[in-house]
Design a protein around this nucleic acid. Structure first.
Lengths: 208, 208, 208, 208
DNA sequence: CCGTAAGCGAGACGGTACGTCGAGTCTTGGG
DNA sequence: CCCAAGACTCGACGTACCGTCTCGCTTACGG
C-alpha cells in the first residue's frame, strides 16, 4: 500500500468529530458552500485545522460525512419506535404511495436545513466524479433501492407491466423532482409531485 | 442607478473576447472547472486580468458566455443550410421523434467537449441561484420550449391526452436523462433513452 | 539562468518598502527576533505577505536591508554637513583616536535600538553562512576597512611597527568588544574599551 | 515554590538520555540547527516527545547538555591518563604556550563535529540572554579561567606588566579568534593564531 | 510478590506560522 | 480609453512543529 500513514482512529476525539460536523453544517447553511472554508469550520468547531486534515481529504468530504451523520441521526430517531428501518409504504395502491413519498421529498427539498448541504454535495459531486460516486453510493442509492422494492411489489400485484425495468422506471419519479430542485426551473410543489406521479404511473401500467 | 462605471463596449477588443472564450473552454476541458482560474485564462489568452474583470463578473460568467458562444456557432453551422432555427422533428409519431431527440441528447452528454463546460455551469448554477437562473434562461429554457411545442402538436394530433401539462410532461423525458448525467448513477445509453421514451410516452397517452 | 521570475523592481512600492523596514525593526526591538514573524511584519506594515516574499527570501534578509537602510540614513544625516563620508579620526595620536572610536562602539552596542537588530542579524549570520557573508560584506567590512586605513596611517607615522598586518591588528580592538557584546561575558564599558586600546596599541608599537 | 511537579530523576531512562544526545548532535550536524526539530530528535532517538519535554525546556537546552556531555566525554578520555584536569601548559615561555593553545582552538573551530553544535549554541545564546548565560558559565568561563591562571603565573614570573587585568587581557587572544570563527570574516589558520599571539603578548609586556 | 505509580513510546490534540496561490483592485506605459 | 502586464492587499490553502494531553506498556518499589 502507498498510504502515507493512517492515523489511529481508536484515539480519535469524538468531541471534535461532532463539533466539526455541527460547524460544517451550520456554516454551509449560513454562508453557503463557497464561502465555507476549512479554517472557518476549524475555528467554529474550536479545533485545529490539522484535526480536519487528519481525518478528511477535502471540505466536501467533511460535509458529506456531516450530512450522512445527520441522516443517520434522523433515521435513528424515526426508527426508534421499533418500526421497520425505512421503506416506501405499501397500501396496495401504487399511485397513493408514491404521491406520499414524492410529496415528502418535495418538502425535504424545500427545507433549508436539508437544501443547503445536499445542494452543496450534489454540486460538488457533479464536478468531482469520485465524490459524486460516494454521494450516490451512500446517500442516493439506498433511497433509490426503496423505489425498486416498491415497484417490484407492484409488479407482483399486477399494477405495473411485467418485465418492467425498475431502475429506469424509478427515474420517471425522481428525475423530474431532482431536475426542478437542482436547476430551479419552476417551483417544487405537492401539486407538481402529484402530476408527475400521475403521468409516470400511467406510463408503467400493464400493457392493454 | 449606481453602476460603478460601464465600460465602452464599442471599443471592446473582439480578438481578446474570442481568445478568452477559447482559453476558458480549453482550460475547463483540460484541468477541470475547479482548477481553472481567472489568472490562468488571462495568461492562456494572452490578455490582462483586468480585461476579464472589465467585462465579466465571475469565472462562471465567462464560461457561460463562452459556452453560449459555442452553442451559437454550432447552431449557425447546423442552420447554415437555410432550415428553421432548431426544433424537435415532427414525423407524426411522437415516440419516434422523442427517441431521436433523446438519443442525440445522450450523445451530447457523453461528448467530452460538451460535458466539461456544461457540467461546470450546471454545478455552479446549483450553488449560485443567480447564475443558475441565467443558465436556465439562456441555455435550458430554449431547449425545453421545443419539447413544449412538440407536445402541443401531439396533443392537437390526439397522440397525448388533452389538457396535458406540457411543462411537466417534458420533465419525464429530460429529468431522467439529466439525473443520470449529473449524478452518474448508471450509464447513459441509447437503449436507456429509448426505454425512458417508451414509459413516458405511454404515461401521456390519451386516457382510455 | 534559473531564476523563477524576477519581479519588476521599477514598479516597486516605495511606501510598502519603508513600512516593512519600520515594522521589522520595531517588532525585533519589541518582541525579539524569534518572536518576530513575517506575518507580524506584514500585518504591522499594512502589507500583504506576498509583498514581502516577492522581494526578500527570508525574515533575516528583510531585517538585514532594514538595518542597512537605517545605517544609511544615519550616515546620510551625519554626513549632511558636507564632511567626509566617515572615517576614524586622525589626531596624530593613535591611542586617543581608537579610544574615541571604541567608546562610540561600546555606546552603540549598549543602545537598544542598535542592539536588537544587530544581534539578531549576527546570530542569524552565525548559523547561515550565506547571510553571514552578506552581513560581513555590507555592514562589517566597511567598518573594518576604516581601521585598516587608520592603522596604515599610523604605520606611515611610525607609531606602529612596520610590516604590521593591519587586518589582524584591527581584530585586537574589535574582537574583544564583539566577544563581550555577543557573549555577554562581562559589562561593556568605556573603561573596558580604554584598557583594550591600551594593551593592543602597546602590542602594535614599533619593535625596540 | 510553584514548580509544576518535578519528575523523579532516579527513574530516568539513561538509554533515552543518550539516544537524545546522539540524535540532537547528529541532526544539528547534518541538517543545521534551524532545520533540527524536537519532533525530529524524538523520532530519530526512538523516543516520545514528552520524554524530551519532561527533562528539557527547549531545543537549545537539549543541545547544550548534549554538547556538554560530549565535552565531558572528550575531557574524560583526554584525562584518562591521570593528568591534571586541563590547563594551559606553562613552559615558562608565555608566547609559546599561548601559541599552542590558540592553535588548538583554531583546530577545534575548524572541526565540523565541534563547529556545528557550538555555533548553534553560540547563536542561540546571542539571542537568548538566559541561554547565553548558561553557555558562558558552563562552557566558556571554565576555559577563560585557564587563561586567567596562566596570565597570573606570567605576571608572577615578570613576563607581563604588573597590575594587568587578566580578564581583559585574555580577550586579546580569544576575542579575535572568536570574531573570525563566528563571523567568518577571514580564514582561521595557525599563522593567524601565531600573529595574534605575537601582537597581544607584546601588548601585555612589562612597561619599559 | 504483587499492586500501583512513575517513566516511557506513540501520537492526537489546539494552535501559530509557514510559504504559495488566486481573487479582485490599482497603476504604468503603449497604441 | 482600451489593453497587456503585473504589483498590490487580502484571505485561504495545506504543511510543519510547537507544547500539552491522553493512551497502553513496562518496570521498579514499597506495603
Amino acid at each position: 500500500m502507498t498510504e502515507a500513514k493512517a492515523p489511529d482512529s481508536s484515539r480519535r476525539s469524538e468531541r471534535s468529530r461532532r463539533a466539526i460536523y455541527d460547524a460544517a453544517l451550520a456554516l454551509v447553511g449560513e454562508a453557503g458552500y463557497g464561502r465555507t472554508t476549512i479554517e472557518g469550520i476549524a475555528s467554529r468547531a474550536g479545533v485545529g485545522k490539522q484535526t480536519i486534515y487528519r481525518w478528511w481529504p477535502s471540505k466536501a468530504a467533511v460535509l458529506m460525512e456531516a450530512f450522512l451523520d445527520l441522516a443517520e441521526q434522523a433515521a435513528a430517531e424515526a426508527g426508534a419506535d421499533g418500526a421497520a428501518e425505512y421503506a416506501i409504504p405499501d397500501t396496495g395502491d401504487l399511485r397513493t404511495d408514491l404521491r406520499r413519498v414524492l410529496r415528502a421529498t418535495v418538502d425535504e427539498m424545500n427545507s433549508p436545513a436539508y437544501d443547503a448541504p445536499a445542494r452543496a454535495l450534489a454540486a460538488e459531486g457533479v464536478l468531482d466524479a469520485e465524490l459524486g460516486a460516494q454521494f450516490v453510493e451512500k446517500l442516493l442509492e439506498p433511497q433509490l433501492q426503496l423505489y425498486v422494492d416498491r415497484l417490484r411489489a407492484a409488479e407482483a400485484a399486477g399494477q405495473v407491466r411485467t418485465g418492467l425495468d425498475a431502475r429506469i422506471a424509478l427515474e420517471l419519479f425522481v428525475g423530474p423532482l431532482t431536475h426542478r430542485w437542482l436547476l430551479r426551473t419552476l417551483p417544487l410543489t405537492h401539486a407538481y409531485a402529484d402530476t408527475v406521479v400521475d403521468y409516470a404511473v400511467d406510463g408503467l401500467a400493464p400493457r392493454p
